[in-house]
């Protein structure tokens, strides 16, 4: 029963440069965050693009990292370990907690997502994130 609340460590699944972020605030509500909720996070670990992009690309990788360790950013929860029941009675549960970083206007910072996201994002008007995702459930 892992609820997504303050101090939860989440995976960041976009290519903004953050790998692991920590939730420091759930916005506009005093409860645990669900899929589609907006949270404020602190970047704890940066993604290392080195081996993927190959040698000589180190300058570009550092530039590709749009966020740095210690940055405070907004994010949208896209997967939760906590079970989430839908209106038709089916329940969905993922094996990890994950989020996508966004700017204050609500647009995603990264340009690509890797990994499945919950369909609840459509209901919460996050269709831009949904269209970036390779798969949704």
């Amino acid at each position: 029963m892992i609820q997504l609340k303050i101090q939860t460590m989440l995976n960041c699944i976009d290519n903004s440069g953050a790998a692991i972020v920590e939730c420091v605030q759930v916005m506009k509500m005093k409860r645990a965050a669900k899929i589609g909720d907006r949270i404020i996070v602190v970047v704890q670990k940066q993604r290392n693009f080195g081996p993927e992009s190959g040698p000589g690309a180190s300058v570009s990788t550092s530039a590709a990292n749009k966020v740095r360790r210690g940055d405070i950013r907004h994010a949208v929860v896209v997967r939760t370990v906590k079970k989430l029941q839908r209106t038709d009675g089916s329940v969905v549960k993922f094996d990890d907690n994950a989020c996508v970083l966004i700017n204050k206007a609500g647009e995603p910072i990264g340009t690509r997502l890797n990994g499945i996201v919950g369909t609840e994002l459509r209901k919460m008007k996050w269709s831009k994130i949904l269209s970036l995702a390779p798969m949704h459930l």
């Binding site: 997967r79 089916s90 549960k93 993922f94 094996d95 890797n114 499945i116 459930l137």
Partner: peptide
């Protein structure tokens, strides 16, 4: 496992959906 992430889903077998 979808896109390397484990996914679990409950379905009601008598659901009209």
């Amino acid at each position: 496992e979808l896109t390397r992430i484990g996914v679990e889903m409950w379905f009601k077998i008598y659901s009209p959906n």
